[in-house]
């Protein structure tokens, strides 16, 4: 199934605004992150485990244990700094 991955702020600068990717049915947000890390290069660097990263599924903040669905919009971004 396909999900739309989006990146913001410093992660967008490194990886671009996002892309559509194929993932296994029942994949978690963490599994998608791992799949992106497995590409190596800039993806491995900015999405690395241990780096502060937040995620949102269909525009709501989520944990990495959340399960994505076909057509989901999944976003990865640094801690927020508005206000």
């Amino acid at each position: 199934m396909k999900v739309r991955v989006r990146f913001f702020a410093s992660i967008r600068e490194a990886l671009g605004a996002g892309e559509g990717i194929d993932v296994d049915a029942g994949a978690t947000v963490g599994a998608v992150r791992d799949a992106l890390i497995a590409r190596g290069g800039a993806h491995a660097a900015v999405l690395a485990r241990g780096r502060a990263l937040r995620c949102a599924l269909d525009q709501v903040l989520c944990e990495e244990t959340a399960t994505v669905a076909d057509g989901s919009e999944l976003a990865f971004f640094p801690p927020v700094t508005g206000g």
């Binding site: 913001f8 702020a9 410093s10 502060a52 949102a56 903040l61 976003a75 971004f77 640094p78 801690p79 927020v80 700094t81 508005g82 206000g83």
Partner: peptide
């Protein structure tokens, strides 16, 4: 509302300084 927004609303600040640009740390 301010406390909530500071930690949960998806905004990011990038400062331009004489030494270059830097993303603000949470």
């Amino acid at each position: 509302l301010m406390d909530y927004l500071k930690t949960q609303a998806p905004f990011w600040k990038k400062e331009h300084t004489p030494e270059g640009a830097r993303w603000v740390d949470a």
